[in-house]
Every structure is written in structure tokens, then in C-alpha cells.
């Protein structure tokens, strides 16, 4: 048996995240998996959205935090110590990246981040994770328990089967001192379609040469009902806000169609979009890496290709 503690996250509407549903699929692939889903924070109503096949228990811990996850790290650490799972699984979200790392180091446990495959059982877990910006893959074996894992968004299919887990709750640990204090959370206005949820993403890169061309990309995204993305080079140059950045250090997207305009396709960028159903590339350099990843492409100057592409798409959508 492999006992698994799966730390589930919820969105602002109180629904379990796609990342958590993907993590359940991953957890079930370990041999004879016994999954306990942990709900951190306000657990009301969470049990119903975690009524999925494979989850045996939903475990709620109360963890009000106005620090950087200090309380929830302490509460999770206590739960791991008392329940001694073989594997602890997070999504590689902001929360999962920070709390997963803190938990592993606090408990002197093995930690593997951003996994795209997992297998084995408690005591011998094998994981595969991209390294060197996605240029290579590394396979690791973890022979100690617990193994703390974070999973890459989109690497596993979200589970859809229903189940009926039992629900239990734990008293939180004693309140820990909040040292770095969050005094305000500022939401930046985002487009009508969230980049992470968009079915179509139109992304621009260094080859655009400046901020103005993003208006054409925005027009195309609007016609398709999608969102605008960008490479890190375009964001660091200040042509578009960092909230649009797709890639290893930006957002991970998996739209039906990812249109990469003047993007060379460095592995760090592809790490954020490689699970798209189809990648379409427009780039004047036929040797650029993007054409190794794309399903359809045009080798040409985006300034000449894009206007006629946009006009034709507009006609087709009319």
C-alpha cells in the first residue's frame, strides 16, 4: 500500500483546482494508492467537490494565514508527522512550490519539484522532471519516506470519476508566529479570458521588436475569444506586462491552439505551452526551435503573414 497525502487547493469560487484533480490522477498511478486529500483553510463545502474516485478520506485542517503560508506549513508538518504518509503531493502552484519545499526541508524529507511522471510505491518512488529549462529530462528514485512531490500543471489528465470519501477534520496546530506579514493583496486587472483558462492563446516574442505589435496579437486573440501571451524576453523588455508571460517562470497554458508569433521556441518558453493541443508557429527563421515543436507553421515575416491571417480568421469566424 502507498499512503498518499494530497494537498488540494481551491480557487476563489471555492471549486477544487484543475491542478488538484490532476494530482489525484497522478496519485492513483502509484501502486495500491490510498489517497487522503487535505483541504487547507476554510473547508466548508470542499468535501463535495472532492467526491472523486480514488480519494478515500478528505482531511480538513484549519489554517488562517496572513503570513506567507507559515501557519499552513506548520499544520501540514504536524499532520505528516502524525499520519506518516509515504508520499505527499502538491500541484506546482505558488502555494505548492513554497509549502512543498518548506515542508520537505522542515521534515528533512526528499523533495522533487515539477514532476511530469511518477510511479512506484511508498519506499521507492520514481519521478521524471524536466531540467535545464526543459532541454533534458531527469529520472530520480526516492527511497525514503515521505517523498514530497510537486506536479507540473497539465502533465496529468484531471480525474472525472466520482467517489464518496469520508470526511474528517483536524484541529489546527497552535498558532505560529507570523513573521513576514502580508498587509495587502492587490489583484491586477486581467483580461476577460484568463490566460491559463483560454482555449486560444496568441503569444509574441522578441522578434516583434517592440510593444506596438501586441495590439495586432490582441485583435487576433479577441477574434478567437482567447488571451494574449508573451515570451520572457518580450516581458523583460517591458513590451507587455509580466502577467502575460508563458514559460518555465511564467504561466503554464494548455489551450487548443497556441499561436507563437516571432517566438524562437527556447525550451524555457516551451515548458509553459508544450501541452497545447496544437502549436502554430509564425517565424522568419525556418531553423528556429519553435518549428520542432509546432504542428503547423509559416516561415515568414510576421508583419506580412499576420494581417492576412487575422483577416481570414475574422472572415471564417463571422
Amino acid at each position: 500500500m502507498t499512503s498518499i497525502l494530497l494537498v488540494a487547493e481551491f480557487d476563489e469560487q471555492g471549486d477544487v483546482t484543475q491542478g488538484a484533480l490532476q494530482a489525484i490522477t497522478a496519485a492513483k498511478s502509484l501502486s495500491d494508492a490510498q489517497v487522503t486529500a487535505v483541504v487547507a483553510g476554510d473547508a466548508s463545502g470542499s468535501a463535495s467537490s472532492l467526491a472523486v474516485d480514488g480519494v478515500v478520506t478528505v482531511s480538513a485542517i484549519a489554517a488562517a494565514d496572513n503570513g506567507i503560508f507559515e501557519q499552513v506549513t506548520a499544520d501540514l508538518a504536524a499532520l505528516v508527522v502524525s499520519s506518516s504518509p509515504d508520499v505527499v503531493i502538491f500541484s506546482k502552484s505558488d502555494f505548492g512550490s513554497v509549502v512543498g519545499a518548506r515542508l520537505a526541508f522542515r521534515l528533512d524529507a526528499a523533495l522533487a519539484a515539477d514532476c511530469i511522471e511518477i510511479s512506484g510505491s511508498g519506499g521507492s518512488v520514481s519521478v521524471t522532471r524536466p531540467v535545464y529549462g526543459g532541454s533534458a529530462l531527469a529520472e530520480f528514485e526516492i527511497a525514503s519516506s515521505p517523498a514530497v512531490l510537486t506536479l507540473r500543471a497539465g502533465a496529468f489528465e484531471p480525474t472525472g470519476d466520482t467517489g464518496s470519501p469520508s470526511v474528517e477534520s483536524h484541529d489546527g496546530e497552535a498558532t505560529v508566529e507570523q513573521r513576514a506579514l502580508v498587509s495587502d493583496t492587490v489583484a491586477e486587472a486581467h483580461e476577460s479570458v484568463r490566460l491559463e483558462d483560454a482555449d486560444f492563446v496568441v503569444s509574441g516574442g522578441r522578434g516583434l521588436g517592440g510593444p506596438e505589435p501586441f495590439s495586432v496579437l490582441t485583435d487576433l486573440a479577441n477574434v478567437l475569444g482567447g488571451a494574449v501571451g508573451a515570451s520572457r524576453a518580450a516581458c523583460d523588455a517591458g513590451w507587455i506586462d509580466h502577467s502575460h508571460q508563458v514559460g518555465l517562470t511564467g504561466k503554464t497554458v494548455s489551450p487548443d491552439v497556441y499561436i507563437a508569433v516571432a517566438i524562437s521556441g527556447a525550451s524555457q518558453h516551451m515548458a509553459g505551452c508544450s501541452s497545447s493541443r496544437a502549436i502554430v508557429a509564425i517565424n522568419k527563421d525556418g531553423d528556429s526551435n519553435i518549428f520542432k515543436e509546432a504542428r503547423f507553421g509559416v516561415v515568414g515575416d510576421w508583419e506580412k503573414v499576420l494581417p492576412s491571417f487575422l483577416a481570414t480568421v475574422r472572415d471564417l469566424k463571422a
Binding site: I68, A180, L181, S183, D184, T185, E188, S243, K251
Partner: peptide, 11 residues
């Protein structure tokens, strides 16, 4: 943070 930022005071 994913859709904005937090204002934080650290010692």
C-alpha cells in the same frame, strides 16, 4: 502572486 501582488513586511 498569480494575478497581482502582495504587500509584505519582513523583519
Amino acid at each position: 502572486i498569480p494575478d497581482g501582488y502582495q504587500v509584505v513586511s519582513a523583519p
